[in-house]
């Protein structure tokens, strides 16, 4: 191979960034998580599992992320399918509409949700006037608020992942299915969905990891009572200044995500 040196040269910037910006910090995090005043210790991990408090935060993080992933998939799939099947002009507009929210900051969008969901916001007001809810009703600081806000933030990732697969899917396959007795919905279920699994897997991976590690939207919409792991890590770093415990929580989040990813990757490999 005469291009070997060139290949390394090409690889270098990305590799350097990965080592400096990702691998070294992760190593540092691993070291911090087992560092105590008198050498190596697992007390930080022990503390995490000492009582039900932190495990409940972990469980909530995983549970919310799963719900968010499922919802973005359920909303994103029809949207992506329609986008992939309309004419080029309409497709462009739909893609712009999907991507547009990504062009404003997460913080701004989350504040928007706070206004919408708050006690005096339009949603609560409307429900109150219809007599469906009491005076103190507010969606703010609930898990539903977190889910709502996160689904909106993460929908583009799901749609774009699905779109990549769906636009490459031969529409003749759907026509063939129709001529073989499938109704439109059966075609979606028997042909389109199975064949777009790689996109579903990729999108779900993205959404799940992003929502499990996100902290701005959950902490703003969930408030102090409904904590997620990323928020708890943030608190340990900035408020209690317990970096070792923060590192231990990060390691748990990191490996927790890795555990979820493994079966997903398997699924992706099988369909790929």
């Amino acid at each position: 191979m005469t291009n070997r040196r060139e290949a390394w040269l090409f690889l270098f910037p990305g590799l350097a960034l990965l080592v400096l910006g990702f691998i070294l910090p992760i190593m540092r995090m691993l070291v911090l998580s087992v560092m105590g005043p008198d050498g190596v210790t697992f007390e930080h991990f022990a503390r995490f599992f000492q009582d039900g408090y932190y495990p409940s935060i972990l469980w909530r993080t995983v549970r919310l992320s799963l719900v968010i992933t499922a919802l973005t998939a359920a909303i994103g799939f029809p949207l992506a399918y329609i986008t992939s099947r309309v004419g080029p002009q309409a497709r462009l507009w739909l893609i712009v509409m999907v991507i547009l929210p990504l062009m404003t900051s997460v913080v701004v969008r989350t504040f928007g949700w706070m206004v919408l969901l708050g006690r005096s916001g339009p949603l609560a007001t409307m429900l109150r006037e219809m007599g469906l809810v009491g005076r103190s009703f507010s969606l703010m600081h609930t898990e539903s608020a977190i889910i709502l806000g996160m689904v909106q933030v993460l929908l583009p990732f799901m749609v774009l992942s699905l779109l990549g697969v769906l636009t490459r899917l031969d529409p003749r396959l759907e026509e063939a299915a129709r001529t073989m007795g499938c109704s439109f919905l059966q075609t979606i279920r028997r042909v389109v969905l199975p064949l777009s699994m790689p996109g579903v897997v990729a999108g779900s991976l993205l959404v799940f990891t992003l929502s499990a590690s996100s902290f701005i939207t959950p902490s703003l919409l969930g408030g102090a009572r409904i904590e997620v792991l990323a928020g708890s890590i943030y608190k340990s770093v900035t408020q209690t200044l317990d970096w070792n415990f923060a590192a231990a929580q990060s390691v748990i989040l990191f490996f927790g995500l890795a555990l979820v990813l493994i079966p997903y990757l398997r699924l992706g490999a099988r369909h790929g």
Binding site: D170, R172, L173, A176, T179, C182
Partner: peptide, 18 residues
């Protein structure tokens, strides 16, 4: 719609389900 017609069609690209 096609699924309610008693036909079968063979496509140029075969359109087999992969």
């Amino acid at each position: 719609p096609p699924e309610k017609r008693d036909i079968a069609m063979m496509f140029q690209s075969y359109a087999l389900l992969p």
